[in-house]
Structure formats: C-alpha cells, structure tokens
C-alpha cells in the first residue's frame, strides 16, 4: 500500500475520495448498529458497532493520508525552497507511513470483529509479537496488517455468501457482493504493485472497490436511524 502510494501518486486523490466514501458508509452503518444496540441490547449489534467504528476511523485516516498531502503540495509547491522541500518530503514519508499503519490497524480491528461476529476463534501470542517486533520494518508491518485484513474480509464475505445461500434474501446478496468486491479490489491492487506501470490494473482496482462500497451501502440505505420512543432498554 505504501509502495503504491509513491508508485501511483497520480491516483492519490481518487483513492483518497474512494476511502472518504468508504468512511461515510462505515459511519452510516455504525450509527444504525449503535441505535440498534441501544434499543435491543444485542451483542451482535454491539460487535457491528465496534467493527464499523474501527473501519470508519481506518478509512478516514487512509483518505486523509491520501488527500491532505495533495492539497499541501498544490498550495505550497511554488513557494518552497529546495532544501525545505527535501526536508518536508522526509517528514511527509515518515508521517504517511505512520498514518497508514494506524489506519491499517483500525481496518484490521474492524474486519477482525466483523469476522468474529461470524464465529471465528482467534488467539494471539503476546510473546511472539514482542519478539517479532524488532525484525519488522514499517512497510512489512503494513503489509502484514493489510494481508490479515484481507483474510478477514475474505472470511466475512464467504460467511455472508453462506448466509445468503441459506436464506436467499437480496440484502445479504448485496452485502456479500460488497465484501467480495472490496476483497477483489484489494487483490487487484496488489497485482498492480507487481506490474508497475500498468495503470489499467490500478484503475480497475479503484472501480471494483467503488462498486464494493456502493453494494455495501445498498442494503444499509433502506435503514434509517431508528428513532423509537424508548432507548437504553435494560433487560
């Protein structure tokens, strides 16, 4: 992801806008889930709320990391002296790395809780994490986080497909297509990194992800945030 940030700098703004759409959809889902949890006290809706809080923050941070430097460059390009621009580039790379890692961590947490909602069991070994920490570079941390996110996303879409096959309800199909398109978009993005210069791959990755977000929003759009007379029911 970080590699593509520098390889495909011309797509930064488009990708930033895409993630901004993603964060908006995540925010909508989070609000509905939160209202649902307040009204029903369902643990499923609590998991969905936490999952989409993390995903919204992750998507928004990614969007910010893509969009903000573009505006900064456009505003100050002519005014900066060369040495300051080099210095700024160094700080910018460091901050970009940090922001991408934080964003990817939130995305990972979001997808993990979403997969947990489908009944996955996961165990972490703290000692292994602390030993491995010293050997990992910034980019590899990011790659690992994104890879695990990808696995959770695939798992979530597979479970959603199973639910659709069981009930044959259209909103579940849209949700499955949304998750599947997001996974496919991420996969195409990786391919684009291996074949640098093949911009159609990058464009199709963005388009597939956009279709994914639209598909995710389709069933969500039919739900308005519930404004029942009672809230905070304690049973």
């Amino acid at each position: 992801m970080l590699g593509s940030y520098f390889l495909f700098s011309e797509y930064k703004l488009i990708e930033g806008l895409l993630y901004l759409i993603g964060s908006f959809i995540g925010y909508r889902v989070m609000r509905i889930s939160r209202e649902g949890y307040r009204n029903t006290r369902s643990p499923t809706l609590l998991r969905l709320t936490i999952s989409f809080i993390a995903l919204t923050i992750g998507f928004f941070l990614t969007a910010f990391t893509y969009i903000f430097p573009v505006f900064y460059e456009l505003t100050f390009q002519s005014d900066l002296i060369f040495s300051f621009r080099i210095e700024f580039l160094g700080i910018s790379i460091a901050l970009t790395s940090l922001f991408f890692i934080i964003a990817a961590s939130f995305e990972l947490l979001g997808y993990f809780i979403l997969a947990l909602g489908h009944g996955i069991k996961s165990y972490q070994k703290a000692s292994a994490v602390s030993v491995a920490y010293g050997f990992l570079t910034t980019v590899s941390v990011l790659s690992i986080l994104k890879s695990i996110s990808f696995v959770f996303l695939l798992y979530g879409s597979f479970e959603t497909l199973l639910s659709y096959l069981e009930s044959k309800k259209r909103p579940i199909l849209y949700m499955f297509l949304g998750f599947a398109a997001l996974s496919a978009g991420e996969f195409i993005r990786w391919l684009a990194l291996f074949y640098s210069g093949l911009s159609p791959l990058m464009i199709s990755s963005i388009l597939v992800k956009l279709i994914g977000f639209v598909m995710l929003y389709t069933p969500v759009s039919s739900f308005n945030t519930y404004k029942g007379e009672q809230s905070n029911v304690s049973i």
Partner: peptide, 20 residues
C-alpha cells in the same frame, strides 16, 4: 416498541449474514 425495533434490527443484522 421493543418488538418492532427488534424486528427492524434483526433484518439489519441479517443483511450482514448475522443473527440478533
């Protein structure tokens, strides 16, 4: 009201392939 909201949100959770 609770029953009504339960029904609504059960549909919402179901669109994610989950059950309340």
């Amino acid at each position: 009201e609770y029953l009504r909201s339960h029904s609504d949100f059960a549909d919402f959770a179901e669109s994610f392939g989950m059950k309340l």
